[in-house]
């Protein structure tokens, strides 16, 4: 089964929409790989704390954000743009329905945790690593200074089946 976790990148804002994750002008691509350079390229935070060119984003396999991530357009390109950049876990307070389902449909995970647990993750020193134990539903984040914080999460049982199967197409082809 696929392993989840690794170096994390943080985006401290609610309501990041799929237009921001991947702008519509790239929806004319037929290949998922073509989305790779354009992940979050137009996203700007008010405090200037996000740089789409940053090394942190390039190296990340976990994205940590706030609430309602992935709202707006249904484009699965938003999930693929993460996927082709090797990001297979998004952690947030909540997700928009279609984005969340698109993640699990691709066999990768959107993890909802409490606001307090999120604050704890955001407070860690830079160069954070997040380990995801999907069986015991446990997240462990380690800051650059070695400090560790942990919390549990709950996956919807059906979403877990999709992850186990490697996505909805495989699951549906097997069952329907």
């Amino acid at each position: 089964m696929q392993q989840f976790g690794g170096i994390a990148t943080f985006i401290d804002r609610n309501d990041i929409n799929t237009d921001e994750i991947i702008p519509a002008k790239y929806l004319t691509e037929i290949s998922k790989k073509a989305l790779k350079p354009h992940l979050l390229e137009d996203l700007r935070l008010d405090d200037g704390s996000f740089d789409p060119e940053s090394k942190e984003l390039q190296q990340a396999s976990v994205l940590v954000t706030r609430s309602n991530f992935g709202c707006g357009s249904s484009r699965e390109h938003a999930v693929w743009a993460l996927e082709v950049n090797d990001i297979n876990v998004v952690i947030g307070r909540s997700f928009a329905r279609i984005f969340r389902q698109n993640m699990f449909n691709c066999g990768i995970i959107a993890v909802e945790v409490s606001a307090e647990d999120l604050d704890m993750f955001f407070a860690l020193s830079p160069e954070v690593r997040v380990d995801v134990d999907i069986q015991s539903e446990q997240l462990t984040a380690t800051g650059g200074d070695g400090k560790k914080v942990a919390c549990s999460f709950t996956l919807n049982p059906f979403d877990r089946k999709l992850v186990d199967a490697g996505g909805w197409l495989v699951y549906a082809d097997r069952n329907y």
Binding site: N102, W168, D173
Partner: peptide
Amino acid sequence: AGIGTTDLEVGILKGVCAFR
């Protein structure tokens, strides 16, 4: 309901879709 491309693939192929 709006869905993503994987849901669409399954819809085209099998005529089903999953919802909570």
